[in-house]
Structure formats: C-alpha cells, structure tokens
Computed example of a mutant assay.
Amino acid sequence: MTAAQADLRTDSTEKTDPVSIERPVVADGAALWRLAKDSGTLDVNSSYSYLLWCRDFAATSAVARGADGEPVGFITGYVRPDRPGTLLVWQVAVDAGHRGRGLAARLLDALAARVAAESGLTALETTIAPGNTASERLFASFAARHGARVEREVLFRTAEFPDGPHDPEVLHRIGPLNH
C-alpha cells in the first residue's frame, strides 16, 4: 500500500474545508480509479476492481467528497478474515487540489472510528514500500493520535512479486487502538 501524497496538516484549514467523509458507492468507482491513476504513486488496479471495492467493501472504505459531491480522496480497506478486529488499509489517495489540508489523516480517523463503532476494531494494518515517507508519516501520526504502538516487518519481499521489479512491502501493525 502506498499513500498518494498523504497530507497530515490538521490546522484551521480543516475547519473550513467543505469536505464530507462517507461510505463509497458503486458510482464512485470510476472516480477512485482516476484518483489512484492521477496520484502517480499508487499501484493502479483495474477500473473493475474499484467498482467491486465500492460495492463489496464500502463498509471498510471511505470517500471524501468536495463541495460539489465529487470524490476528492479515498481510503480502501477490509477487515482481515482471520483477524476480525484488524482493518487492513489498502490504498489512500487525495486529489492534488485538496492536499495540504490534513484530508488523508481525517479520512483515516473517520474510517477507523466508523469500523470501530460497527464491528469492533483493535488494530490497523497497512503495507508501505521503503522510502514512502508520506505514508510512514500518515500512519505514525495515526498511531500517536490513538495511543498505539507500531510494529514493522517485511510482508512481501521484492522477489515475491511476479510482475517485475517491485519494492518490498513492509507491514505496519498499529495497535492496540485506544478510541
């Protein structure tokens, strides 16, 4: 997982930014695909996968909507089947015009709060490629805000990716969470 230019500011801009955070719907799938593609940093999945994600994993994902109702950011995630108290965050993206306003952090906090209220959440996981400091900062600040520690280990080594050179993915386990 990589966050696309994750932004962490939580200043007065947050209070005046007319963005709502909601569950995605199928109609958002195309916009999520475009946001991922335009990020320039995310591994872009097929457009079909974003449509399915918005249908099948809406309860564990979030979309940020601008004043016009169009998606300007998103987080995709799922609850791990073998660890029902763990939310795995797959992708985080924020539109270039909405960066620098703390939106990625707001999305992450809102999603964690919703999943905690609906299905109980004790931990959050994500994978981050080495050198992706934006993602590392986003998730480290989330852990600090929630009084949790971060454990790291390589989940997938470079050699395990079948489609060419790929940086290893380091699993970041954040928990236990204090809500």
Rank of each mutant, 00 (worst) to 15 (best):
A140R: 05
V154C: 12
R149G: 14
P162V: 08
A140N: 08
P168C: 12
V150I: 12
V170A: 05
S141A: 05
E160A: 13
H166D: 08
A143Y: 01
A143W: 03
V154Q: 12
T158S: 15
F161H: 13
T158R: 15
A143M: 01
E153K: 11
F156M: 13
V150Q: 02
E160F: 08
D163S: 10
R173Q: 11
G175L: 05
L171A: 10
L171C: 09
P176T: 09
A140S: 12
R145D: 05
A159K: 12
A159H: 14
P162Y: 06
P168D: 14
G147R: 01
R149P: 07
R152M: 07
A144S: 04
R173Y: 07
A143P: 02
H146Y: 03
L155A: 13
E151P: 02
R157C: 09
E169P: 14
T158Q: 15
D167F: 10
G164R: 08
P162Q: 08
E169N: 14
R157E: 15
E160Y: 08
S141T: 06
L171E: 11
P162L: 07
P162N: 04
D163W: 12
P176D: 06
G147V: 06
P168S: 14
A140F: 05
L177G: 06
E160C: 10
E153N: 03
E151S: 12
L171M: 13
S141Q: 01
F161M: 10
H166I: 00
P165C: 01
L171N: 11
V150R: 03
R145V: 01
P168H: 12
R149Q: 12
G164F: 09
R152L: 08
V170P: 03
A143S: 04
A143R: 06
P176V: 09
E160V: 09
A144T: 07
A148K: 03
A143C: 02
H146A: 05
T158E: 15
E153L: 08
F161R: 07
P165R: 10
A143Q: 01
R145H: 00
L155Y: 13
E169A: 14
H172L: 15
T158V: 13
A143I: 00
H146S: 03
L177C: 09
F142W: 04
I174S: 03
E151K: 10
P168N: 11
A143D: 02
L155E: 14
A159L: 12
E160I: 07
R145S: 00
L177S: 07
P165E: 11
R173P: 06
V170D: 02
H166R: 15
H172R: 12
R157T: 13
F161Y: 15
G164K: 09
A140K: 07
F139V: 06
V150W: 02
A159P: 04
R145Q: 06
G147F: 02
T158F: 11
E169Y: 14
F139E: 04
A148L: 01
R173F: 07
I174T: 02
A148E: 02
G164D: 10
A159E: 15
H166M: 09
R157L: 13
E160K: 06
E151Y: 07
A148C: 00
R157N: 13
D163Q: 12
A144W: 00
L177Q: 03
A143H: 01
R149V: 15
F161S: 09
T158H: 15
L171V: 13
F142H: 01
